[in-house]
C-alpha cells in the first residue's frame, strides 16, 4: 500500500512539478519502493519454533523482520532481499532459507 505523501513524484512529471533541487520532504518514503523482487532465496518463518530472541531483527539490513511489542510477527517480503543473514543467526530452526519459486 502506497502511503499518502506530501508529493507523489512520478517519472512523467514536468520540471515545474518536481521538488526543487531534488529535495524530498517525505522522509522515509523509500518504503514505497519494493525490493522484494530482488530475492532468489527466501527466509521462511516457523512461528511455532520461534523463541522471539530477535537476533534476526538485529542483523537484517533491510528492516524486514517485523516486530511488535518485543515479539516477531513476520517478514516484510515487500523489502526483504533474501540475503540470508537472518537465517544464519537463528539457533532454533525458526527461519528456513528456501529458493524462490
Amino acid at each position: 500500500m502506497i502511503k499518502e505523501r506530501k508529493v507523489n513524484i512520478t517519472p512523467d512529471m514536468t520540471w515545474r512539478e518536481l521538488t526543487p533541487g531534488g529535495v524530498i520532504q517525505d522522509a522515509g518514503n523509500a518504503e514505497d519502493f519494493k525490493t522484494g523482487d530482488w530475492r532468489s532465496m527466501r527466509p521462511v518463518w516457523n512461528t511455532e519454533k520461534c523463541k522471539h530472541c530477535l537476533l534476526c531483527w538485529v542483523v537484517c539490513p533491510d528492516n524486514s523482520i517485523k516486530v511488535e511489542d518485543g515479539k516477531m510477527t513476520g517478514i516484510d517480503y515487500d523489502h526483504c532481499k533474501g540475503c540470508g543473514v537472518c537465517t544464519a543467526q537463528c539457533k532454533f530452526g525458526a527461519l528456513d532459507y528456501v529458493p524462490e519459486e
Binding site: A30, F33, T35, P61, D62, D78, H79, C83, G84, V85
Partner: peptide, 17 residues
Amino acid sequence: ARLTGGHRMCAGCGAPM
C-alpha cells in the same frame, strides 16, 4: 527504526546494519 527498507543496498550489505 530511523532507516526504512526499500533502499537499494546490495542484499546482505553491512552498511544499513
